[in-house]
């Protein structure tokens, strides 16, 4: 499995809803309880209205490539066999952006604007982690 040895994210209390959703196969973002603005990753308060309190809500999992890079330098041993690999920024249909990886495509075939959809892979022993794959427009 490609992800063996990758640094597994800690499930911090503020991100618990994200990982619970992922386990159900749902991509989640935070929704401000006051003004309804969507955000990712989790924040203690809303940068738009400064309201406290937010609820994790599912989104479509669809979006497009907003930007990407192709990593050649190895910063962590788990990636030594993977370079060059791409890291993408997805702009979700609902607005928020997410950093992720794109599966099912070679790094140099990635283009900004490419439509993508979420897919999930197992990370570590008990986490599901969202990645993205190309989709038809």
């Amino acid at each position: 499995m490609a992800s063996v040895g990758r640094p597994i994210p800690a499930v911090t209390p503020d991100m618990a809803g994200f990982f619970e959703g992922a386990r159900r196969g749902q991509l989640m973002v935070e929704k401000c309880d006051h003004c309804g603005a969507l955000r990712f990753p989790a924040h203690d308060l809303c940068a738009k209205c400064l309201g406290r309190g937010a609820t994790w809500v599912p989104v479509s999992g669809r979006g497009e490539i907003y930007s990407f890079n192709i990593m050649h330098q190895v910063y962590h041993p788990a990636f030594a066999a993977e370079v060059p690999y791409a890291v993408i920024v997805v702009k979700l249909e609902e607005g928020p952006k997410m950093i992720s990886n794109l599966v099912g495509i070679k790094p140099h075939e990635i283009r900004i604007g490419m439509p993508v959809e979420v897919t999930f892979e197992r990370g570590g022993e008990d986490l599901m982690i969202p990645k993205f794959r190309p989709r038809a427009r």
């Binding site: 991100m15 907003y66 950093i99």
Partner: peptide, 30 residues
């Protein structure tokens, strides 16, 4: 090394997004 500076945590590290170089690269790519 840039890794020693501790810029990457959580999900970003899982996806292999490390350091300032990688973040600036997103902006340059756009």
């Amino acid at each position: 090394s840039a890794a020693a500076y501790g810029f990457a945590r959580g999900l970003n590290a899982y996806y292999g997004q490390f350091g300032v170089n990688a973040a600036y690269a997103f902006v340059a790519q756009r």
